[in-house]
Simulated scan of single mutants.
Amino acid sequence: MSLAATLAIRAAANFNIVGPFALRVTPKTNSDVDGYLWACHAGAATEGLCYAAGAGAVSGSVYEFYYNYTFDEESLYPGFISYVFPYQGADGSLVKVPSLLQLYPSYSSNVNLALIPPGSDGGTSISLDEDSGQFYMGLQHDDTRWNSTIPIPETPRNVSNFHICYQWTGGYWYRSLAWVSGYEGAAPQNPSCEPVNLGIESLGSS
């Protein structure tokens, strides 16, 4: 079933969840980045989104993600990429905690690390195009030509500045997901970063 059909079926509810699905990354430029993201250990009860090369369908709990969003008759609102964080409870039982992706800004770089801490507080809202299945930040203003004169009103545009970078991901050196601050196509300060499209794809058979 297509994403558009899934959203249409679930539109009657105020709060909806799509998934599980795989997070697919494809290159925006002539690079070798073409694969999937998986939940990799980044520190105490924290996951990063690490890159794994390959175009074949993936399966397994570390590849299973969700999209939590709200919807009304007029529009689909930005939602949250989520992951179910499993851990062993005090009584030995398996506890599952839905947890939201969060982008962490750096004061010395324009590269913002993506991490998934446990729990549903503080997630970064991200939009999902229901036709293409691609994620983006919606309705952003371009300030690259602003000055003392009030600018002519312009239509905000959608921006997708996801990158795969070699970076400290929590306490580990991984090739993982980041967001580059700036308008569409802004150059990352980290020279290892490669621009990618981030979207959803059906999981393979377990």
Rank of each mutant, 00 (worst) to 15 (best):
S2N: 12
A5Q: 13
I9F: 15
R10F: 05
A11M: 07
A13K: 15
F15D: 08
N16L: 05
N16H: 06
N16M: 04
I17C: 06
G19M: 01
G19I: 01
R24Y: 03
P27V: 15
P27Q: 11
K28W: 04
K28C: 00
T29A: 12
T29L: 06
V33G: 08
V33K: 08
Y36P: 02
L37K: 03
L37N: 06
W38T: 14
W38K: 15
A39E: 08
C40I: 00
C40M: 05
H41P: 03
A42Q: 10
G43D: 09
G43F: 14
A45Y: 00
T46M: 10
C50F: 05
Y51H: 06
A52D: 06
A53S: 15
G54P: 01
A55E: 04
V58P: 08
S59I: 06
S61M: 09
E64A: 06
F65H: 00
F65Q: 03
Y67T: 02
N68R: 14
N68F: 14
F71L: 12
E74A: 11
S75N: 07
S75V: 07
S75P: 07
I81T: 08
S82P: 14
Y83E: 04
V84D: 14
Y87V: 04
Y87K: 14
Q88R: 15
Q88Y: 10
G89L: 00
A90Y: 13
A90G: 11
D91A: 11
D91K: 11
G92D: 08
V95N: 05
V95D: 05
V95A: 03
K96C: 08
V97S: 03
V97Q: 03
P98W: 11
L101N: 04
L101R: 04
Q102V: 15
Q102D: 11
Y107F: 01
S108D: 13
N110T: 03
N112C: 12
N112I: 09
A114Y: 01
I116W: 05
I116R: 06
I116Q: 02
S120I: 13
S120W: 07
S125Y: 09
S127E: 10
E130H: 11
E130T: 13
S132K: 11
Q134V: 06
F135I: 05
Y136I: 00
Y136S: 04
G138A: 10
L139P: 07
L139K: 13
Q140K: 09
H141G: 08
D142H: 08
R145T: 15
W146L: 11
W146F: 12
N147S: 14
N147Q: 10
N147G: 14
N147I: 12
S148M: 10
S148F: 01
S148G: 12
T149S: 11
I150C: 12
P151H: 03
I152Q: 13
I152K: 15
P153V: 13
R157D: 02
R157C: 02
N158G: 05
N161D: 04
F162E: 01
C165D: 01
Y166Q: 06
Y166E: 04
W168I: 03
G170R: 07
Y172G: 02
Y172F: 09
Y172R: 13
W173Q: 09
Y174M: 09
R175Q: 10
R175N: 11
S176A: 13
L177N: 00
V180L: 02
Y183Q: 01
A186S: 02
A186P: 02
P188T: 05
P188N: 14
Q189G: 10
S192R: 01
C193V: 02
L203V: 04
G204R: 08
S205K: 10
S206K: 10
